[in-house]
Computed example of a mutant assay.
Amino acid sequence: MKKFWLLIVFVSILFSCSDNNTSNKNPYIPSYSVNLSIDMNLPAYSNLKFVSNGIIIPNYGAKGVIIFNAGSGYTAFDAACPNQALTSCTAMTINGINAVCSCDKTEYSLFTGLGGKEYPLKQYRVEVIGTVIHVYN
């Protein structure tokens, strides 16, 4: 079990440190400008202070933005299903440590964005200053 968590932390760090935008080259999800800041001291976002918790912020990106506390930092992904046409699905939902596509029920890890399909979740950059999380591209 300890090795499993070590692997998750390593993969999370690897993806969060990467400046590689290959996960963002997706023909189904347009590149919308995202510039979002939230304060974890506000009740709506306070769950993000705890590891393995995530929230969906609507009205950003294609279908909203999912922000997730991965323990070693925060990840942010678009809530649009990455392997479906944008108009065919509603926003993804959060099921524990996974995001679930409403169309095909594929689950994507909120640690890595991977889901075993052709395209991973569309990832955004995250910067944390104190209790404020800034998500942008």
Rank of each mutant, 00 (worst) to 15 (best):
residue 2 K to G: 09
residue 2 K to P: 01
residue 3 K to D: 14
residue 4 F to H: 11
residue 4 F to I: 09
residue 4 F to V: 13
residue 7 L to G: 09
residue 7 L to M: 08
residue 8 I to V: 15
residue 8 I to Y: 07
residue 12 S to E: 09
residue 13 I to E: 07
residue 13 I to W: 03
residue 13 I to C: 15
residue 13 I to T: 01
residue 13 I to D: 10
residue 14 L to H: 08
residue 16 S to N: 05
residue 16 S to K: 05
residue 17 C to M: 06
residue 17 C to Y: 07
residue 18 S to D: 00
residue 20 N to R: 04
residue 24 N to Q: 13
residue 24 N to E: 14
residue 25 K to A: 04
residue 27 P to E: 10
residue 28 Y to Q: 02
residue 29 I to G: 01
residue 32 Y to K: 04
residue 33 S to V: 04
residue 33 S to P: 03
residue 36 L to V: 09
residue 40 M to E: 01
residue 40 M to W: 05
residue 41 N to M: 05
residue 41 N to V: 02
residue 42 L to C: 11
residue 42 L to W: 06
residue 44 A to V: 14
residue 45 Y to F: 15
residue 45 Y to I: 10
residue 47 N to S: 15
residue 48 L to V: 05
residue 49 K to Q: 12
residue 49 K to E: 01
residue 49 K to W: 06
residue 51 V to F: 01
residue 52 S to N: 11
residue 53 N to A: 04
residue 54 G to L: 03
residue 55 I to F: 01
residue 55 I to A: 06
residue 56 I to A: 05
residue 56 I to E: 07
residue 56 I to C: 07
residue 57 I to W: 03
residue 57 I to N: 13
residue 57 I to V: 15
residue 57 I to D: 14
residue 58 P to W: 00
residue 59 N to R: 06
residue 60 Y to P: 11
residue 64 G to S: 15
residue 66 I to Q: 04
residue 68 F to W: 11
residue 69 N to R: 11
residue 70 A to S: 15
residue 71 G to P: 12
residue 71 G to N: 12
residue 72 S to C: 11
residue 75 T to H: 10
residue 75 T to P: 04
residue 75 T to E: 09
residue 75 T to M: 10
residue 76 A to M: 12
residue 82 P to K: 11
residue 82 P to F: 06
residue 84 Q to I: 07
residue 84 Q to A: 13
residue 85 A to P: 04
residue 86 L to K: 09
residue 87 T to R: 14
residue 87 T to E: 15
residue 89 C to M: 00
residue 91 A to R: 03
residue 91 A to C: 05
residue 91 A to W: 03
residue 92 M to S: 05
residue 92 M to V: 14
residue 93 T to Q: 11
residue 94 I to C: 05
residue 96 G to R: 10
residue 96 G to L: 13
residue 97 I to P: 02
residue 97 I to L: 00
residue 98 N to G: 10
residue 98 N to A: 11
residue 99 A to G: 03
residue 99 A to T: 00
residue 99 A to Q: 00
residue 99 A to N: 06
residue 100 V to T: 12
residue 100 V to L: 09
residue 100 V to S: 08
residue 101 C to E: 07
residue 101 C to V: 06
residue 102 S to T: 13
residue 104 D to N: 11
residue 104 D to W: 01
residue 106 T to K: 14
residue 106 T to I: 15
residue 107 E to R: 08
residue 107 E to M: 05
residue 108 Y to Q: 14
residue 109 S to A: 12
residue 109 S to Q: 04
residue 110 L to H: 07
residue 110 L to R: 02
residue 112 T to F: 00
residue 114 L to E: 11
residue 114 L to N: 13
residue 115 G to Q: 14
residue 116 G to C: 01
residue 118 E to G: 01
residue 118 E to Y: 09
residue 119 Y to H: 09
residue 122 K to W: 02
residue 123 Q to V: 02
residue 125 R to V: 02
residue 127 E to C: 12
residue 127 E to D: 06
residue 131 T to W: 05
residue 134 H to K: 13
residue 136 Y to S: 12
residue 137 N to W: 03
